[in-house]
Amino acid sequence: MPLPHDPGPHWGEVGIHGLHRHREWDLVTTVEVSGLVGEEAWFVALPDGRVVIEEGMVDPSPLAHAVALAPPYRAHAVRRDMALWVVGAKRIETVTLLEDPGGDAVELAWDGRERTVRIDGEPTLAGVPELERLASARHATYVVTARRLEGDVWEISVTPL
């Protein structure tokens, strides 16, 4: 005897909920490069052509040159075979800060009445005028996160509150 049809919701099954997974990468490519050491690498390509290594191999420049995406971008490369690599890249926004705020991570928020700033997770009364000007030109209230990539170059994200 066949079992009765189950009319209950099946939220986890493909095609039922209609939501797709968010795209993780702006570009994914494969490239053949021999002689690279390691199995994977995380790196950032800067607009001036420099490649900042975040994790992994000594010099991922040959992989960065294979990415058909204008810098700046963050990339993750994984070796699939002896010389075959898969590289996923996502656009990021960078800014050069003339005044060093100190630390390696800055969180800045403005809710229209009060400004809060954290540098490396610690609250501070110091401001970061360059980030404040950049964010206020885009939104009336905002949250800015900034992470030092190299020297005075920072990756930033500006989000409205």
Results as ranks from 00 to 15, higher is better:
residue 1 M to I: 10
residue 1 M to K: 02
residue 4 P to A: 12
residue 15 G to I: 01
residue 16 I to C: 06
residue 18 G to R: 10
residue 22 H to K: 10
residue 24 E to F: 07
residue 26 D to I: 08
residue 26 D to L: 03
residue 28 V to M: 06
residue 28 V to I: 14
residue 29 T to I: 12
residue 30 T to Y: 08
residue 31 V to E: 09
residue 31 V to S: 14
residue 32 E to S: 14
residue 34 S to Y: 03
residue 34 S to R: 12
residue 34 S to C: 10
residue 34 S to N: 01
residue 35 G to A: 09
residue 37 V to M: 11
residue 39 E to R: 14
residue 41 A to S: 15
residue 41 A to L: 06
residue 43 F to Q: 09
residue 47 P to G: 07
residue 47 P to D: 11
residue 49 G to D: 05
residue 50 R to G: 06
residue 53 I to F: 00
residue 53 I to Y: 00
residue 59 D to T: 10
residue 60 P to F: 02
residue 61 S to F: 03
residue 63 L to S: 07
residue 64 A to K: 12
residue 67 V to F: 03
residue 67 V to S: 05
residue 68 A to M: 13
residue 68 A to E: 14
residue 70 A to Q: 15
residue 70 A to P: 10
residue 71 P to I: 07
residue 72 P to V: 11
residue 72 P to N: 08
residue 73 Y to I: 11
residue 78 V to C: 05
residue 79 R to E: 01
residue 81 D to W: 07
residue 88 G to W: 04
residue 89 A to T: 12
residue 94 T to Q: 02
residue 96 T to V: 15
residue 99 E to I: 08
residue 101 P to F: 01
residue 102 G to M: 08
residue 102 G to K: 03
residue 103 G to N: 09
residue 104 D to W: 02
residue 108 L to V: 10
residue 111 D to T: 07
residue 111 D to Y: 03
residue 114 E to T: 14
residue 115 R to T: 15
residue 115 R to Q: 13
residue 116 T to G: 01
residue 116 T to W: 01
residue 121 G to C: 10
residue 123 P to A: 10
residue 123 P to D: 05
residue 123 P to E: 12
residue 125 L to R: 14
residue 127 G to C: 01
residue 128 V to T: 12
residue 132 E to H: 03
residue 138 R to H: 10
residue 141 T to M: 09
residue 142 Y to E: 06
residue 143 V to I: 13
residue 144 V to P: 05
residue 145 T to F: 00
residue 145 T to M: 01
residue 146 A to W: 02
residue 147 R to D: 06
residue 148 R to E: 14
residue 148 R to N: 13
residue 149 L to Q: 12
residue 152 D to C: 02
residue 154 W to M: 07
residue 155 E to K: 03
residue 156 I to T: 05
residue 158 V to A: 09
residue 159 T to F: 03
residue 160 P to Q: 11
